[in-house]
Amino acid sequence: MNEAIRFIVDVASLGSLYALMALGLVLVYGILRLVNFAYGELIMIAGYTLYLLSGSPLPWLVMAACAVVAALAASVLTERVAFRPVREKSLTAMLITSFAVSTLFQNAALLFISPRARLVPLPDLFSESIVIGGMLFFVRELLAIVVSISMLVLFTALLNRTVLGIALRAAADNFRMTRMLGVPANLVIGVAFAISGFLAGIVALFWLGRTASVMPGIGLEPLIVAFVATVLGGMQSLVGAVVGGYVLALMTVGINTFLPQALVDYRQAFTFSLVILILLFRPEGLVRGK
């Protein structure tokens, strides 16, 4: 029983982060058909913002807010400076641009900060564990679940209850038609990038909170996770991204836990084989778009 609860909490905390990462990626993809390969670097930027603020007397929550704002600003800025000028050209141009942006950010961190790991300050809560019903839980994991689920609820409300949300959903469904109906493209795209950056910032707090450090290449894993989760969940659907995130976490933790010790070296092969298998039967992902 205890092990089952442990397993569920592990999956839920990892899955919540995966879901947020995937959502941030698929939001932009839905509108522009662009897989933003610079997405992981937004997480890196949030991390370095925390590092640069680590000597300051600010309370942690303020630092965290700054980090999220930095990721959001970087996301909006890359859209304005890098993606918008090539948007009308071709999808390939945008894709290459996203690689360029990613490399630029990484190298800037290498040059101006350091190639080696740097401290990300954490609140004391992140270094604590609590015992509930005789079981030990990490406060960080529980917080990740609570914050992620609140984000998902907030985000759903935004999409369903506000004009902006309706515009976003319409743009994701049929961008050209949405523009013809008078919705300003730049606004919708700008908002999508802003939300994507915001989610990356939130993810960064918990993702980097595991190691308490940030490095220039730190964005690669979240990017891959987000990409696989969206492909798995269905790239045409926002719900799919969330489902994909949780399913990927379930597979990761499940394989890690139940694979016999002799095969444990190959667990990533198992995870990705499973992903391929699912895609064979459901090429559009688990959740089909309209």
């Binding site: 592990d10 990892l14 993702w207 595991r210 690669l220 976490a249 933790v253 890690n256």
Partner: peptide, 8 residues
Amino acid sequence: GAGDFSAQ
């Protein structure tokens, strides 16, 4: 890069 040490 696996990011998850819970099973271990």
